[in-house]
């Protein structure tokens, strides 16, 4: 589904990504882990065509990114980092969910019954249906993030790219969100790439883990990864994995914090 070949990104002569190659299959749920400045956001922005690579190529469905975008357009749902969205815009939740459905003379647009039903469905899935006609600036950070997830899904995307989706989301809803995403990947065959610092959740819910720190240190099935070794290499810290009976079978705790 997504193939990245020898991708290198340099910004102001600084190497941000170094010779990254990977292959993600349709319906796979992939978690990207790495320390701050590892190039995680740069990698997903390059896959989305927001950053031009210095060298290397991105293929989606065996098409170059531009061709895929021209052919399929809305088939990628993208959730940018919470902080870079203008949440002070005077729009309601329904407007925000449908904001990518750009139309000429959009000031006068009226939403169709199908559009409103679809918005209602996805807001319900993410637990914020009651906020459909609220203004986005009046929502909490976690609710805004759930609205963004509903926006990502409104076009029935083939690919979901999520940059720290759990930002501002409370612990209880976090678990529901990951389960929902896992369900979307396995049942609707949506390919999901998720950047997160939530090591416990990533190791529990995703199919494959990618550990990134400028270079790709590992890309393999969650169960096959020797997390302690890889994290030591990527984060540069001695890590220990503590396995609990329920809830988080693979959560990692930094020794220093113990």
């Amino acid at each position: 589904m997504i193939t990245v070949k020898n991708l290198t990104v340099k910004i102001d002569n600084k190497v941000i990504l170094d010779d990254i190659s990977m292959n993600i299959k349709k319906g796979e749920f992939v978690g990207i882990l790495g320390p701050n400045g590892a190039g995680k956001t740069t990698l997903i922005k390059t896959i989305l065509g927001l950053i031009k690579p210095t060298s290397g190529l991105v293929y989606i469905d065996n098409m170059e990114l531009d061709d895929y975008m021209k052919k399929k357009g809305f088939y990628i749902g993208y959730l940018p980092q919470h902080a870079i969205v203008n949440w002070s815009m005077p729009v309601r939740v329904v407007d925000a969910v449908l904001i990518e459905k750009v139309r000429p003379f959009g000031l006068f647009r009226r939403y169709s019954k199908e559009e409103l039903e679809s918005v209602e469905y996805w807001l319900d899935m993410f637990g914020v249906k009651d906020k459909m006609y609220s203004y986005i600036r009046e929502l909490s950070g976690g609710q805004q993030q759930r609205v963004s997830l509903a926006r990502c899904m409104i076009h029935n995307p083939e690919i979901l790219i999520l940059d720290e989706p759990n930002t501002a989301i409370d612990v209880v809803y976090n678990t529901k969100m990951y389960e929902l995403l896992k369900g979307l990947a396995s049942e609707k065959m949506i390919t999901i790439i998720m950047v997160s610092h939530d090591i416990g959740a990533v190791t529990k819910y995703v199919d494959e883990i990618m550990c990134l720190n400028v270079k790709l240190h590992c890309h393999s099935k969650t169960d096959d990864v020797n997390i302690s070794t890889v994290f030591k290499e990527v984060y540069g810290e001695d890590m220990e994995i503590v396995v609990h009976g329920d809830g988080c079978k693979n959560c990692a705790i930094n020794k220093a914090e113990k």
Binding site: K45, L48, G49, L50, M69, G73, F74, I76, Y78, P80, I84, V85, N86, M89, V91, A96, I99, E100, V102, R103, P104, F105, G106, L107, F108, R109
Partner: peptide, 23 residues
């Protein structure tokens, strides 16, 4: 301005989303 109103609206919301929407 009226023709491109919703284009400018999404650009004001988040330029990256506008780009991905083909604008």
């Amino acid at each position: 301005i009226l023709y491109y109103f919703s284009h400018f609206q999404i650009m004001s919301y988040n330029e990256e989303l506008a780009y991905i929407s083909g604008i």
